[in-house]
Structure formats: C-alpha cells, structure tokens
C-alpha cells in the first residue's frame, strides 16, 4: 500500500555539493531567487539557468531533476501562451501578428519567454539545494541561525504527513472499491476526502499526546542529535555565493540597457511557432495528466 512518492526529496549521493553545509546552499538558492525576479533579460536568466544545470551535473541528480522538470515545464508553458496574448507589461503593446482570434504582442512573447527562464533558473538552484541536503540537516542548520524549534518541527511534520496522507488515501480508495463503490476517477476521490481528513485530525491529536509524553516542549536545556558543522570552506562559499548573486542583482537593476523588451524582436513566424508549440505542449500534458488520474 505505498502511495506515489513525492518527487522532490533528497537524492542520496556523495558529491561535492552533497557534502556542503546546508546554509551556503540555502543562501545561494535564495540569492538566485532574488536575482531571477530582479531581471527580465533572457540572456542573464539563461546564463543563470545554464549555471544551475552545471550544478545539477556536479551533484549527479539529473534523473530526479528531469522528473520534476517533466511536470513543471508543460505547466510553465501556459505562461508563454497567456503572456503572449495578454502581457504583464505597461501598455502600449506592440502587435506582431494575429493568432486565430488573438493577437500576439512583442512585449508579451518577451515577457513569456523570460518568465519561463526565470522559473527555471530559480527552481534549478532550489532543486539542487533540496535534492542534495538531508531535510533534518537543513532544519538543524536553520535552528542554529535562530529558527524557533516549534516552527522547525511543524515543517518536518508537514514533510512527513504528505506520504502518510497519500497512503491513507490509497487505503480508503481500496476500501471503497471492495465495497462496490467507484474506486477510481474524481467521483471516487471526492468522498474519500472526508475519512482521510478526519483521520488526519485524529492522528495529529494522538501525536500531540505522544509528543508531550516524550517531554516535547518541556523546560530545561535542549540538546540536538544532528550535528551540522560549518567549515571555513563552507563560510567562504557562502560569502562568495551571496556576494556574487548580490552583485549581479545590483548590476541587472542598475543597467537599463539590459531591458531588451523592445530591442529583441521576434519575427511573426517565429512568434507563431513559439506560441503554438507552447499551447500544444501544455494541452498534450494536460490530456496525459487527466487520463493518468482517471486511470489511477
């Protein structure tokens, strides 16, 4: 009775990135996140994304990385389609060509492509961080820099609860099937929500009793089982990483010539090909996903 495993978990390994302290990884991922939102320039975002892929290779997590991207990429394609016909940009918009009943705008396709790159530059770094760090190590590190223990515990517990609930779902669905009820499709998922969530509440209540029975939250000194050390190398990497992302962020904000929204011209045929491919890609994924859910 094993539910579908969540794809975003640690991938065991012993690469250089795996051995790095969680904090430098976390701060660099955060830096990249800020940087990605600070610019729309496709070249800058593309370079950051490519750099992220270098880290994916270094960490040896391509297989798990692609599994997440396989879901994320088709969904992000909607952004390209939606942005192209309704850009998140101040008017006036420059029309390029008609696409059925819609008009494709220059700013729109620029913004769509850069958003796609933005999502991928930041998620690549985030995934490298998550997939090379044991969650407990990450939480221990966060606790060291002052995150409250209780908040920490809530996060750990949430991560644990997802597979448990998936499991429980599978059990309830089987129980329904064995009593002649519909066992698949949306018609079956909906009625199983109630038992699963009532069960979850009961579980949490029991857990709180059992945790208190193990002195959780009691007064006195608390010690920590996991010992995550920060070496000089970790400090150096953290400082360099933060400085690099910070400097780049300042540069992309300050340098106005990086705004290519009107200089990077998409010819009409290319625009139609991009938008059409994005639309087809997303619809194909959507149909596949629905048929998968209905079959399950």
């Amino acid at each position: 009775m094993q539910g579908v495993a969540i794809p975003i978990t640690m991938v065991a390994g012993d690469s250089y990135i795996h051995r790095l302290n969680p904090l430098p990884k976390l701060f660099i991922a955060l830096g990249v996140l800020i940087l990605s939102f600070a610019t729309r320039n496709p070249l800058v975002l593309g370079v950051v994304f490519a750099l992220g892929l270098v880290f994916v290779t270094a960490a040896g997590i391509w297989k798990s990385y692609l599994r997440v991207v396989g879901i994320l990429f088709p969904i992000s394609l909607t952004l390209v389609v939606m942005q192209s016909i309704a850009p998140a940009f101040p008017r006036p918009w420059t029309p390029i060509t008609d696409f059925g009943p819609f008009t494709i705008y220059q700013e729109g396709i620029y913004s769509g492509v850069s958003m796609l790159l933005r999502i991928f530059s930041m998620t690549t770094f985030a995934l490298v961080m998550i997939m090379t760090t044991h969650p407990s190590d990450l939480f221990t590190s966060l606790q060291k820099i002052g995150m409250p223990y209780v908040l920490n515990f809530i996060l750990t517990m949430t991560l644990q609860l997802i597979p448990i609930l998936q499991n429980e779902f599978a059990i309830v669905l089987s129980a329904q099937k064995s009593r002649g009820m519909k066992g698949s499709g949306f018609g079956a998922v909906l009625p199983s929500m109630v038992p699963v969530f009532v069960g979850a509440i009961e579980r949490v209540q029991q857990l709180s009793i059992s945790l208190e029975s193990r002195a959780f939250g009691s007064t006195g000194i608390k010690t920590s089982f996991r010992n995550v050390t920060m070496s000089l190398k970790d400090y150096v990497i953290m400082v360099l990483g933060v400085l690099a992302t910070l400097a780049t962020t300042v540069w992309v904000i300050a340098d106005k010539s990086l705004d290519w929204s009107r200089t990077l011209i998409f010819p009409p045929t290319l625009s139609i090909i991009i938008v059409a491919l994005a639309a087809i890609g997303f619809v194909a994924f959507f149909i596949l996903a629905i048929s998968y859910v209905l079959r399950a």
Partner: peptide, 19 residues
C-alpha cells in the same frame, strides 16, 4: 501515530533532545 521523525535514530533522539 506516535512516530514523527525522518529516521529511526532521530525518532529515539527526539525524547533525548527534549530532556
């Protein structure tokens, strides 16, 4: 319903950390 940690060792360590 009594288990909450990511590994068996941490599960046992939980109570020890608290005391």
């Amino acid at each position: 319903f009594q288990l909450s940690q990511m590994t068996v060792a941490e599960e046992i360590a939980l109570g020890l950390e608290n005391i």
